[in-house]
């Protein structure tokens, strides 16, 4: 299987409640909470597209868009 490549993190700040689960469990410290306690992307280049932030988000506020063989996943 080809490796996924990050296209973009879609973050819905209106839905995010700032629990920090995505930040805490990100293996590469890609995300952070901003001053408003909403999630933001800090280091997108480090993202390995494991998507655990998306899967564990209680607020359905993160979507990790990826590409694979030039196609959208």
């Amino acid at each position: 299987m080809a490796r996924l490549k990050l296209k973009e993190h879609l973050i819905n700040q209106d839905w995010c409640k700032g629990c920090g689960i995505c930040v805490h469990f990100c293996p590469k410290k890609v995300l952070k909470l901003n001053a408003m306690e909403r999630v933001e992307v800090l280091n997108p280049e480090n993202c390995i597209c494991c998507k655990f932030c998306e899967l564990r988000c209680p607020d359905l506020a993160i979507e990790v868009l990826t590409t694979q063989d030039g196609k959208h996943d």
Binding site: G18, C57, P58, L60
Partner: peptide, 20 residues
């Protein structure tokens, strides 16, 4: 949305898993 559950509530994660 946003739903009524508190920040960090596990029920939101269950919803997330269920939808997938």
């Amino acid at each position: 949305f946003p739903h009524i559950w508190c920040p960090g509530c596990g029920h939101g994660i269950v919803l997330n898993s269920f939808l997938r």
